[in-house]
C-alpha cells in the first residue's frame, strides 16, 4: 500500500486516493480529429518503470495529485500539484 505525499494535505494512505491513470496525456484541440481523441482516450504506453500518473485525493482534499511512481517497485520519486512538471528519474 502506497503512502502518497499530497501537496496540500501531506503524506496520506493510498486508501484515501483513487487512481486516474496517465498524467502525461493532453486533451487534444476540439478539431484535432477522431484519431487524436482515440489516442487521448485509449492509447497508453503501459511502461515497466517510471510513470507519471494522477491520483485523486478523493477521501481528502479532492485534488488531483501528480505522482511519479515506478511500476515495478512502486517507489514514488515525487508528487506535485496538477500544474507541476515533475522530474522523472533515469532508469
Amino acid at each position: 500500500m502506497h503512502r502518497i505525499d499530497c501537496p496540500w494535505c501531506g503524506p496520506r494512505d493510498e486508501a484515501e486516493f483513487a487512481y486516474r491513470g496517465d498524467a502525461t496525456v493532453r486533451r487534444p484541440a476540439h478539431d484535432a480529429g477522431i484519431d487524436a481523441f482515440y489516442d487521448y482516450v485509449y492509447t497508453r504506453a503501459n511502461p515497466r518503470g517510471w510513470h507519471t500518473e494522477w491520483w485523486h485525493h478523493a477521501g481528502g482534499c479532492r485534488q488531483f495529485v501528480k505522482v511519479v511512481r515506478h511500476t515495478m517497485t512502486h517507489e514514488i520519486a515525487g508528487t506535485g500539484k496538477a500544474g507541476d512538471s515533475l522530474p522523472v528519474p533515469a532508469e
Partner: peptide
C-alpha cells in the same frame, strides 16, 4: 463530481 474536478483541475485549469 469527480468528472468535474478532473476537468477543472487538469484539463482546463
Amino acid at each position: 463530481m469527480e468528472h468535474m474536478e478532473f476537468h477543472a483541475q487538469t484539463v482546463w485549469p
